[in-house]
């Protein structure tokens, strides 16, 4: 019995290949995120550390240099920080704010529910990117604003999930029982409902990370996200696009970085779903 303690910890990884792949990829990503700046051979925005457009895999620039003679490897590695920072912040904000609001609306019902859900519907009736473009035009671009905009686009979705989960939990016997026993309502919410929807939220949050990162890079690509000289992958692709015919490498690396990070979160989401979603677990 004692020995299984360890094994039960590893069990999820046996259940889902995706979770294992996702975790490994995630660890690599986090290492880059934390250690990246000290690993990068050059400051990301220092110009002229090499000739402009030095090709990859030659000389002392592993991934070559960009149009201003900046080291591409350093920029991609530093870009991890900005792209992930925005994405993590926005996913957290969207999950916490959206989840809380949705759960409260679902739990208390009545006019609060109606108002909150109408607002959510209103926001969901526009395609996210269009909405984001207009909002950025109003509040301006930049790291913080990008994170705010992305979370604003996704929060209504989370709130719907939160609300739905609370509504179905309310039907459950244990909540009815808790209510009957006179447990105060907020406590019921925290004690009984929250733990039950956490798995769903966790899966959804890793999906949010994937979509959020794509969203962030789209905005940066349009010039509305993270601003230069800060390196963000979308922003790097934006300026690299000009030189795709003479320096295709500049467009390849940040694109691959985006793909890798997004893929990581998709794998995590898949894996978490397989492990946490009881419907899937049964099979």
């Amino acid at each position: 019995m004692r020995a299984t303690g360890y094994r039960s910890l590893l069990l999820p990884f046996h259940r889902s290949v995706e979770l294992s792949i996702g975790t490994v990829m995630f660890v690599v990503l986090m290492l880059l995120f934390i250690l990246g700046p000290s690993l990068a051979p050059h400051p990301p925005s220092q110009m002229g550390v090499g000739e402009p457009f030095a090709p990859a895999l030659e000389g002392n620039h592993l991934l070559g240099t960009d149009e201003l003679g900046r080291d591409v490897l350093s920029r991609v590695v530093h870009g991890t920080r900005y792209s992930l920072l925005v994405t993590l912040a926005s996913a957290l904000m969207a999950t916490v704010v959206g989840g809380l609001v949705g759960m409260l609306a679902g739990f208390f019902g009545g006019w609060l529910d109606i108002v909150v859900m109408r607002i959510a519907d209103l926001m969901l009736s526009f395609p996210g990117l269009l909405l984001a473009i207009v909002i950025v035009a109003i509040i301006g671009p930049g790291i913080t604003n990008t994170a705010i905009v992305i979370s604003a686009v996704y929060a209504p979705r989370v709130s719907r999930i939160g609300r739905g989960a609370v509504l179905s939990a309310k039907e459950n016997d244990y909540v009815t029982a808790a209510n009957a026993l006179g447990v105060r309502s907020l406590r019921v919410l925290l004690r009984h409902v929250l733990p039950n929807i956490l798995p769903t939220l966790a899966v959804y949050m890793s999906l949010l990370l994937a979509y959020g990162l794509l969203f962030e890079s789209s905005l940066s690509f349009l010039g509305l996200g993270v601003q230069p000289p800060l390196p963000s992958w979308g922003g790097m692709l934006r300026s690299a696009r000009t030189f795709i015919q003479i320096a295709p490498g500049l467009s390849i690396w940040p694109g691959l970085a985006i793909m890798y990070a997004v893929l990581t979160f998709f794998f995590l989401a898949e894996g978490l779903r397989a492990v946490l979603d009881p419907r899937l677990r049964d099979r």
Binding site: S45, M47, E67, L68, G140, P141, G223, Q227, P228, P229
Partner: peptide, 22 residues
């Protein structure tokens, strides 16, 4: 924007810290 990035680098050498707003 490229020119501003270059200017920011050059200003930084005398301690002037210029943030670019696109």
């Amino acid at each position: 924007i490229d020119q501003l990035q270059m200017m920011a680098e050059q200003f930084a050498e005398v301690g002037i810290d210029m943030e670019i707003r696109q």
